[in-house]
Nucleic acid binder design. Structure first.
Lengths: 227, 227, 227, 227
DNA sequence: AATGAATGAGAATTCATTCAT
DNA sequence: AATGAATGAATTCTCATTCAT
């Protein structure tokens, strides 16, 4: 009994170590990194990795599931915190900051978003997205986020910025200012009708935005310089 | 002589065909796609590909250089067009829309951004960035983009959104609305001091944004609902 | 033109050499033998083997197809020869003698017989069986083989004896005498009703033969010693 | 003491269970089946299998020894039964029928026959062969088997037919008729000199049988149809 | 210049066997 | 004595790159 327990504890520890290392290895080198590298850096034999995760895909998936679950748990914690605005923006900021060190997870977030093959990871990803959607709604009800922003585009921005943040030359400073711009866009009341860029967030089903044509054609009718 | 000339013309045509195919192949399948696939779809022998591009990396680089150059040329054209604001936003929109179909180029833009190994492609990438910087300055001078936004973060947003747009489940509609938010953030006057998210684009060198701590601590002093 | 032809000739030669070697390697070691062994003994790189045969199964199948085709061709030649009896028995003898040196091919004949996964090889095997069936019918019409023997059991005997002949300790002498017994059984007029073993070839659908029960029960009614 | 005894009883039981399972596993999947599969289906840990049988080869050997011993015991029982003919043919039939369900054992019988590496199994195999030889002699003395048949070829036929019977598409009906032909060959008085196949069981040391040459040459002088 | 064949260095995965408890 | 985890040596297959024609 005791024996069994101890062995399991050891194995569990190994499993966790492998996951930790894999998160780092796949983070740095993308999922193209070799399983052997994971084994080496985890200090175990290659077969041990395969004992815990029968295929490489299973290993990658386990890494993602763990990561998505952690993020979702964090989001749930923030849901309960007072201050819906800070909760939303804080989570957004945290996730992007975290992505900076877990490089290819952004890629995974990215890849999985449309991939339906990876069962569990997909589920965990969707759960995270759902919770994030709740954070968004709360923040909108609190007036901290404009009402016309919807989950698909906001989540796309979350993925986009976290992915961008994983680039090594994007330091913390740049990242913060990048987010400040996005956050202004999210918070900002669509002031007056005249915007310099001609896009409206509330536009739907309009096919191609008119901007491109206008721009190519040359001078837009909108005033170029604001008073 | 004639033969030589003809062969050269043939070779040049081959080179272009290979580049076209490679752009598509690496676009669809990522740079993990095989060189043999490129050769097959270009209708040439594998050795011909390696005759034109001594390594796979060289082929990928040539694809990127051509792509960056095209984008830069487009940016230069817009620089001369009247209407600095539409020029900037239009180019941004175009590039993101284009990325949606050239999937892995966004990845490359991404990867290269910090990579200094890839000589020519890096140079082309920097040239594009520089031209984009000029577009930005013009737009700022025209009042179409807030003054406190600087190239690093704006370029980061360009990369981020173009990468996000390459995901299959991001349709044109979502892409447009995502950009609308970002563009509002770029255009928007930093209204009053009280922002719901607590980030200021003009903050520099401040290490960690204070948001996180505040948020975790709970209720911020700032009013949650705006009047 | 010339160039292309020459290359193809070389490649064809390599292909044949690989097949020859594979026939030997899989013959000696069973299909469990490694592809690398085939490559080494063929004097080519492992990748060359896989270039010609995309999977190991394809290689094994190609070996079998070639072998079955050769045997069928031989059978067809004999079909045209005068003397249906000698043709039948001669083919039987030849095939068994040949199997003695192509060890595991007997195994393949064996395995394939019920296997429907291996497309081409299965087809080639069936073609051989069909031609052998014609040889059998001719021999029966010529009175050289008893009329009540049918293809399934005769073919089973062919497979069985060729497989047995592949064992190293079965020398030619033993093989010949083993065949002599089988051939006597095939040729032999079902003499009188009283056989010492109690089985009749013409029995069909009789479920279990009665022999076993009788034997276990003890003394059969049939006379034990023949006059 | 008590503990030791109990443990030993348990261990013995485990050993038997492992052997039972192994007989089935190696029977179904060939000896390529994995040891882990045996352990799993036996409900023990993999290490327990290796405690009882130090190598996989030892396990396979133990399975074979047990099987050969059982067959030999059965043969010995039949030796004492009245009716030497039925004893011989019955044993032959039983063994072949049994092989139909213990697939790869036929293969093992086969493989071992010439293999001198597998000590105990080889010995058990030889013991079986010896006992079978006695059955044969008795049957010959009883006139149930022709006098000129000797053990090597008869045993070869036993192995050959049992191996053939293990093929899934050889049903009981075909198996019985295949045996009927062989048994006719074994029982049959070498009638008159003129056989359609030209082989004589009593031929020894004659190098190649003349049949092949004759057949290839074409029309034999012997009449093709018997009067 | 162009081609297709050849090559060896990985990569994922499996398996018999050993180790620690 | 029993267990399950760990291990490294195969094995199949892929791919960038080189060679010969």
């Amino acid at each position: 009994m005791m024996t069994g327990r101890v062995q399991r504890v050891d194995a569990r520890a190994n499993r966790e170590r492998i996951l930790d290392v894999a998160e780092d290895v796949f983070g740095t080198g993308g999922k193209a990194a070799s399983t052997e590298e994971v084994a080496r850096r985890a200090g175990v034999g290659i077969a041990t990795v395969f004992r815990h995760f029968p295929t490489k895909a299973a290993l990658v998936e386990a890494v993602l599931v763990r990561r998505f679950d952690r993020l979702r748990t964090r989001a749930e914690t923030l849901l309960a915190a007072p201050g819906a605005g800070p909760a939303f923006y804080g989570f957004f900021t945290e996730l992007v900051a975290d992505a900076a060190t877990k490089i290819a997870i952004g890629e995974a977030l990215h890849d999985l978003a449309g991939d339906d093959g990876a069962g569990e990871a997909m589920a965990a990803s969707l759960a995270l997205r759902r919770t994030f959607g709740t954070l968004l709604q709360q923040a909108q009800r609190a007036g901290a986020v404009r009402d016309d922003a919807e989950l698909p585009e906001v989540y796309a921005l979350l993925v986009a910025t976290s992915r961008a943040a994983s680039q090594p030359h994007i330091d913390e400073d740049v990242r913060t200012r990048m987010l400040a711009i996005v956050f202004d866009g999210l918070a900002g009341k669509p002031q007056d009708g005249a915007r310099p860029h001609g896009l409206r967030s509330s536009d739907r089903q309009t096919g191609r935005s008119g901007v491109q044509g206008v721009m190519i054609a040359g001078a837009p009718s909108a005033p170029d310089r604001r008073p």
